[in-house]
């Protein structure tokens, strides 16, 4: 579904993505892992067209998406930090995004899921951080596209909401949708991800299933496998 070839991005003399190539198949839950500064968010921002790669090609369903904008109609994207105009209400934002995307928004699912009904007509600046994150998730996912890209989706959510979100995503998975997310929370990865892309200093260190990573690092659990991977990497430098 997504194909990235030789993607390179530098900020100043810092190489954030170093000749990254990868292929993500359809109908999977993929977790993008890596320590801070490893290039997770940059990779996703490249895919979303927010960061312009220095070189490399990106393809969605075989079509090149570099410097394009219309492909984003087919992606539901949740940014790491999302803020919306403070003086608008969630309901207005739903209408605005539907307007901009020219797609029907079906936000009811999330209103029920996160119990947002009482907040729909309050201005954003009057909502708590957790509620705002729920609103952001609603605004990102309400178009029900086949591809979901989420940057740290559980940030700021309470445990109940996390569980509900997980259940929702698993349900989507059953509907054969593709889900890509970045996270620091290992249990979430273990529980949900079918495939891991492990980024380290702008390179793909590992791509495969959770089990494959554990096996490769000869560690029984994922957390230790990742820690092991990091230490060996450091030792090799």
């Amino acid at each position: 579904m997504i194909n990235v070839q030789n993607l390179t991005k530098t900020f100043g003399n810092l190489t954030v993505l170093n000749d990254v190539s990868l292929e993500i198949g359809a109908g999977k839950i993929v977790a993008v892992l890596g320590p801070n500064g490893s290039g997770k968010t940059t990779l996703i921002k490249c895919l979303m067209g927010m960061v312009r790669p220095d070189k490399g090609g990106m393809y969605l369903k075989g079509e090149q998406i570099n410097d394009q904008s219309s492909y984003r109609t087919y992606i539901d994207y949740l940014p790491q930090i999302s803020r919306h105009p403070e003086n608008l209400t969630p309901r207005e934002l739903v209408r605005m995004l539907g307007d901009i995307r020219q797609q029907p928004a079906r936000e009811e699912v999330f209103v029920d899921l996160f119990e947002l009904e009482p907040y729909l007509d309050k201005r954003l600046k009057n909502l708590s951080g957790g509620t705002r994150q729920k609103v952001s998730i609603m605004l990102s996912l309400m178009f029900h596209n086949d591809l979901l890209i989420m940057d740290e989706p559980t940030n700021g959510l309470d445990p109940t909401a996390i569980i509900r979100l997980k259940d929702y995503l698993l349900e989507k998975r059953r509907e054969n949708k593709s889900i890509i997310f970045t996270t620091h929370i290992i249990p979430l990865v273990e529980e949900m991800a079918e495939e891991i892309i492990f980024l380290l200093e702008g390179n793909i260190y590992f791509q495969g299933s959770v089990d494959e990573l554990k096996k490769q690092q000869s560690e029984p659990n994922l957390e230790r496998a990742i820690a092991h991977a990091l230490t060996t990497k450091k030792a090799s430098i």
């Binding site: 979303m48 067209g49 927010m50 904008s69 219309s70 492909y71 984003r72 109609t73 992606i75 994207y77 940014p79 930090i81 999302s82 803020r83 919306h84 105009p85 995004l97 901009i100 995307r101 605004l139």
Partner: peptide, 16 residues
């Protein structure tokens, strides 16, 4: 103040 909002808009299918 609207940088994050701009990012959100950048994820929408519209030109910069």
């Amino acid at each position: 103040n609207s940088r994050d909002y701009i990012e959100m808009l950048l994820a929408q299918p519209i030109r910069r």
